[in-house]
Design a protein around this nucleic acid. Structure first.
Lengths: 247, 247
DNA sequence: CGCCCCCTTGAGCCGGGTCAATTTGGGTGG
DNA sequence: CCACCCAAATTGACCCGGCTCAAGGGGGCG
């Protein structure tokens, strides 16, 4: 687990804590509410419809994804979750739905559980917390909108864009995207075969290393290929505009 | 405008007001904050980056869509907005972004403006309001996730699904979807030409009328073609689970 | 040291895109 | 009431990116 921490540390630029990096300041009041911590291993389901109505989950360490498993065996990955992210979504509240939405660990992870009542009381005490949750949901929507845009792009820029997004979330200095080609395929909506051909091209362009891992050699070029503008991930200006203060 | 009201009345099942149908009960505290009302005509931009940081907009009547105009002239429609919807999104907060996100009226509409300060104060007074906004953003994310799923489907079920979604939002008894084929194309991500061929097929299947408008004759069949399960639009159970009360 | 994922590559097909006309119906001014 | 206009709807021809099917490789972990 130590290496795991190292791998996911600094998951957000300007982070302060090695584990909970993403917007730690805003989320701190949430972290205070974490009573239970659980370790989960790769592949395990962290959140699904059986759990959500009693507790809210926060990813403390590791990497996870929200996904749907379709009856035909295919998997749709909506978003990847990094430390600090709330793993809650109204979309997973429908146990009878054919498409089963869940959050799944992609590496060894550590999650924190928050009691629903505690959260409600916290919001009563600190109304700004409600705004923080609102904002977090808006960021999620923002990411989804961006994915809708890239969904229409050709395969190469589409994959490149996802890699840029993940590099940004992993934080400055990160070079290896800890995903495999299957996960990338399920996120961008390409077949594994075609995704593989895209990786081949990216390697020939000198953007990725020849290694089996996804290792970015030329981030600048990657951003150009993806027309990447990371501002949709950035919430700091919202923070300042709304002058949110917790306490 | 009177006919306009009639056309969009009852925009949500179990509505109580002819104009503000969608979740009127939850949003009432928001509506109290509306100081200014404005009429906008079809095609006009309601919200873009020049406006959002001072005011929050609510759609009181009519039909609107959130969209991005790409430099190549194409338009991506993310969601359609019905009366009662908040027309705010962090995604439109980036004036320098190449892709310009905006909310655009698709018919004559009436919007209400809420001062940012008034909203902040209201949240201070009634913390549950923050949760309502959170929930609204989660519903938006839910709609976007669903659109990501259908984005991988073949053209016919994809279009059918959008029509089902809009029928649901328009409310029981609605039969005409007040969109044209261009708007549908931009929402589902198909070319106008191919969208037109899908409509041709839907007519031959007896699902749509021969009329130029989008008039649904066989909603049951349409739902089957789309594998439609409207629960992702339904927030009522969230309401009850969280026992939200405004005042 | 062997097994199971995962990665890789080739061949052939097809849904949907693009380009280019043409039609249609509603709105408008004379 | 009619001729005209224009956005939207329609249709045909052709092309291609990405999918499917199928068959190897390779390396990390038990």
């Amino acid at each position: 687990m130590q290496q795991q921490y190292a791998a996911t540390a600094g998951a957000w630029p300007a982070s302060r804590s090695p584990r909970i990096a993403h917007n730690e300041i805003d989320r701190n009041p949430l972290l205070d509410l974490v009573k239970i911590r659980e370790r989960v291993s790769r592949g395990e389901t962290i959140v699904d419809s059986t759990r959500t109505d009693k507790q809210i989950t926060v990813l403390l360490d590791g990497l996870a994804c929200m996904s749907t498993l379709h009856k035909d065996g295919s998997r749709q990955i909506y978003t990847f979750h990094h430390p600090g992210d709330l793993l809650v979504s109204q979309g997973m509240r429908y146990p009878n739905s054919i498409d089963h939405i869940q959050v799944q660990a992609l590496s060894k992870s550590l999650v924190g559980l928050i009691e629903r009542n505690d959260l409600e009381q916290a919001i009563q005490r600190r109304p700004a917390l409600g705004q923080v949750l609102w904002r977090a949901a808006m960021v999620e929507a923002s990411i989804l909108r961006q994915r809708l845009i890239t969904a229409r792009w050709p395969a190469l820029p589409r994959v490149a864009h996802l890699l840029c997004e993940q590099l940004t979330r992993l934080g400055v200095g990160s070079v290896v995207v800890p995903l495999n080609q299957i996960e990338v395929s399920d996120a961008v909506g390409l077949s594994v075969v075609h995704t593989n051909r895209v990786f081949k091209d990216l390697r020939q362009l000198g953007v990725l290393s020849q290694s089996r891992r996804i290792e970015v050699l030329d981030e600048k070029r990657l951003r150009e290929l993806a027309s990447f503008d990371g501002r949709y991930l950035d919430v700091s200006d919202i923070l300042s505009r709304w002058e949110l203060r917790i306490e």
